[in-house]
Amino acid sequence: MDPKHLYERDFYAWTQQQAQFLRERAWEKLDLPHLIEEMESLGRQQRQELRNRLGVLVGHLLKWEYQPQARSVSWLLTLQVQRQEVLDLLEENPSLRPYLPEAISKSYLRALQLALEETKLPRKTFPKTCPYSPEQILDSQFYPGEPSGLLEEED
């Protein structure tokens, strides 16, 4: 089957076929336009993954800071897991690190929506832009707002 048609009919089969062509060095058989498109898409997916993780992480930092009476072990674990996921993503894709400030800025609306939904606090409670630096966001010791007894339980 023609690789271009396979791409449209059975994407998984197309990926396996393209991988086989690469292994065989059958350059003339490669579906280059779609292969280029998919390679670029993989890069965009990594950036999107970073923004998604940051949205959850920053959203929970906002909740932690602005609704201290509702802090929970669940929030703490979410902060820890999301920080580690972001750090892993940056370790696996070091060229994403310069994109981090832009990713934080772009993900702040998502973070804000999460905090608004879950805290039910008024919009004016929260800053218009992300109040945390990239270093703070990724720092496992950074928990904004007043100290919490939950952190002492961790030690």
Rank of each mutant, 00 (worst) to 15 (best):
K128S: 11
P101L: 03
S72Y: 03
S95A: 15
Q18R: 02
L62N: 09
R123A: 14
P33C: 05
H5I: 14
Q48M: 13
L90V: 04
R71I: 05
P127W: 05
L150G: 00
E85I: 10
E8Q: 15
L89H: 10
A115G: 13
E102F: 05
P33K: 08
I36G: 05
P33H: 05
E92N: 12
E28C: 00
E24M: 11
P101H: 09
D88F: 05
R51Q: 15
L109S: 14
L42C: 02
V73D: 02
P33M: 01
E91G: 12
K63M: 13
Q20F: 04
I137H: 13
D31T: 14
L112R: 13
T15G: 04
E38D: 08
P144A: 10
G43V: 08
E135C: 00
R51A: 04
M1R: 10
I104H: 09
L6T: 15
Q80G: 00
R83N: 03
Q80T: 02
Q16K: 14
L79D: 07
L22Q: 06
V56P: 04
E85H: 10
W14N: 01
Q20R: 12
E118H: 15
E118G: 08
E102C: 00
F21V: 05
L138R: 11
E152C: 04
Y12H: 09
Y143G: 13
F21N: 12
A103D: 11
S41V: 03
R9W: 03
I137V: 11
L22A: 12
E153H: 04
Q136P: 04
L62Y: 04
V86C: 01
L32C: 08
P131I: 00
S41L: 12
K128W: 03
L62W: 02
